[in-house]
């Protein structure tokens, strides 16, 4: 068994490898973002106490389905089965398929994380908000979600780290992400050891940065922080920087 360092160094910043890493990062960020938004709505649906339990049921079925089947199967479904189902009228590219499958899958996991976060907020908070005349939407946006964020950030960090690694599954639908491009290279030169080491190092670098960002975010949502926040669309995500 011999490891050739010069091969390793040559390919570490080789164009297709770097491009693959870029695509991996983009797919992970986009899918995680969509997954969080999807998860928020699924969590609210699951917690809905309206007389019509439709939303509760739909959310429950969704989560059951997407947590209960392998991500790889979901990915192949989107890429191969949808064209067949729709008589080739819907054919999705490999990157699009990858992002769709990763997002749909992530939504199910984020739903459970966000639901647990919302449920960990003291019910007295909701009562106080209601007593002040806040509607359900205002109560959620201004009072419950900013507090739930503190519970949601650590598991979401874990999810994002998994997401970075799970993008490698999109290799099976020929999305030209990091692993796919790595394989393309070693298929021609047979330097498996060196090239898989290059890929592993890139994944490690990305997950390390993700971990660092997570710990920064956790500090940021501490209540002591007094940096003024101008509010805005995502103002609720940074309660530590709350206006006032």
């Amino acid at each position: 068994m011999n490891f050739d360092p010069s091969v390793f160094w040559h390919y570490l910043f080789y164009g297709p490898i770097v491009d693959g890493a870029k695509l991996t990062l983009i797919m992970a960020v986009v899918s995680q973002t969509i997954g969080i938004v999807l998860g928020l709505f699924l969590a609210l649906g699951r917690l809905s106490r309206s007389k019509l339990p439709v939303w509760r049921w739909l959310s429950g079925i969704y989560i059951w389905l997407f947590r209960g089947t392998p991500l790889l199967v979901q990915l192949l479904f989107v890429y191969d089965a949808i064209p067949q189902m729709t008589g080739e009228s819907i054919v999705l590219g490999s990157i699009t398929s990858g992002i769709i499958a990763l997002s749909l899958n992530e939504g199910a996991y984020m739903a459970e994380i966000i639901r647990a976060g919302i449920q960990s907020v003291d019910p007295g908070q909701v009562e106080a908000a209601k007593a002040l005349g806040m509607t359900y939407t205002k109560t959620m946006r201004r009072v419950v979600l900013p507090q739930a964020v503190r519970f949601v950030i650590p598991p979401t960090g874990n999810e994002f780290i998994s997401m970075l690694k799970n993008t490698s599954l999109a290799e099976v639908v020929s999305a030209q992400e990091l692993l796919y491009n790595t394989q393309q290279v070693y298929a021609n030169n047979f330097f498996y050891f060196e090239l898989l080491s290059v890929a592993a190092l890139w994944y490690l670098a990305m997950t390390t940065v993700a971990t660092w960002i997570q710990s920064r975010l956790e500090q940021r949502v501490e209540y002591r922080n007094t940096i003024p926040n101008r509010g805005g669309l995502f103002g609720f995500a940074f309660p530590g920087m709350h206006r006032g």
């Binding site: 003291d122 007295g124 908070q125 106080a128 908000a129 507090q147 209540y223 709350h242 006032g244």
Partner: peptide, 15 residues
Amino acid sequence: NLFPHMTALGNVMEA
């Protein structure tokens, strides 16, 4: 039941 993520002023201004 004060809002823990807001200052005293923030709590009073919120509603």
